[in-house]
Amino acid sequence: MSEHRRQILEMLSVGKITADEAERLIAALEKDAPSGGAPVAANGPAPKYLRVMVEQEKDRDGDTLAKTVNIRVPLQLLRAGVRLASLVPPQARHSVDAALKEKGVPFDLSQLKPENIEELIAQLKDVSIDADDAKGRKVKVRVFCE
């Protein structure tokens, strides 16, 4: 039995998630598991940090050197932040949701649960985004767990 599946069943047994939620999580695990591969946790030690790297290439004229940002955040901080967010009073939560919706982000803070973060960490191997800034320079953003 994989580690993730065991965690899901443990959460179900203590009532942290419903049966429907457990079924959806297990289905997501089965759907995204690589063929012949093993879950991330079984490949080695569990990831401890979330790393975000932003690299901006040089200007076309070569005068400006590249800029880079490298941020490493402990996953423990993210987990603790999600738990803290669950303590936000409902009236404040509604205000935050409304403000996010105004900015075009239809996010419901009440749906953010610790198990969502675990699922995200399990699936987040290496996300790379290539974009162009206002001056046409290439910007590469990498997000991964290590």
Binding site: K48, Y49, K67, T68, V69, N70, I71, R72, V73, P74, Q76, L77, L78, R79, A80, G81, R83, L84, L87
Partner: peptide, 17 residues
């Protein structure tokens, strides 16, 4: 929860070049 947030800050590393 607040204690865990503070404790989670250990190991944070930021580099800006």
């Amino acid at each position: 929860a607040l204690w865990n947030v503070l404790a989670g800050l250990r190991g944070t590393h930021v580099e800006i070049s």
